[in-house]
Computed example of a mutant assay.
Amino acid sequence: MRITMQSPAIPAPRFRYSPCVRIGQVYQVSGMVALDPVSGQLEGGGVGAETTRILANLLAALPDYGLTLDDLLIARIFTTRFEQFSAINAAWEAVFDERVTPPARTTVGVSALPLNATVEIEFSFVKSSLRKVHQK
């Protein structure tokens, strides 16, 4: 059964799509750009600030989706400023530090993103009863 989900903690979609879709234990969070949850406007300050906002929005929405970062399988990052990847990575590492196991990740350079954003990230989760199983 397919279930669509929305979180009141983040801006509502501006276009026709589902922010999060769940089928069984798999959750797909649509690509997020750096919208301020209060104003609904795109976050200023470049790729680092945009990435920080996207990750903050994700963290705010996770409780409404019934997920944690431990459920995160892969993140796909799209950016129009690949030459500034170090700023994206710095914002990423502020969330996925040594206390949090990072998911798989892909980063792709693109020519344009919605709303003139410089970063968009989509997230795939798998809800599991198994927690903190680390393979190194």
Rank of each mutant, 00 (worst) to 15 (best):
T68F: 02
L73R: 13
L42M: 09
E122G: 12
V26I: 14
C20I: 07
L59I: 01
E98W: 08
T68V: 04
N57R: 05
T118W: 04
E43F: 00
A75D: 02
L72T: 05
L35K: 09
H134C: 08
G40S: 07
A12V: 09
F85S: 09
D64S: 13
R22C: 04
S129P: 01
Y17A: 05
Q6M: 11
L35D: 00
R53Q: 15
F78T: 02
T106E: 15
T51K: 01
V26L: 12
R22V: 07
P114S: 06
D36E: 04
T52V: 04
P114G: 05
E122I: 00
D97A: 01
K136V: 14
Q135S: 14
G44L: 13
E83I: 07
T51N: 00
S111D: 12
V29G: 01
V110G: 01
A117D: 00
I74G: 01
H134G: 05
S39I: 05
F82C: 03
S124N: 14
V47P: 00
R76C: 12
A9E: 10
T79V: 09
F78G: 05
A9N: 09
V38L: 14
I88M: 06
A75P: 00
M32E: 09
A49G: 04
A49C: 10
R131Q: 14
K127L: 15
A60N: 07
L67N: 01
V21F: 06
Y17V: 06
C20G: 00
A12Q: 15
P19Y: 05
D70N: 13
V29C: 10
E50G: 03
T80M: 06
S39V: 06
T52G: 08
L73S: 12
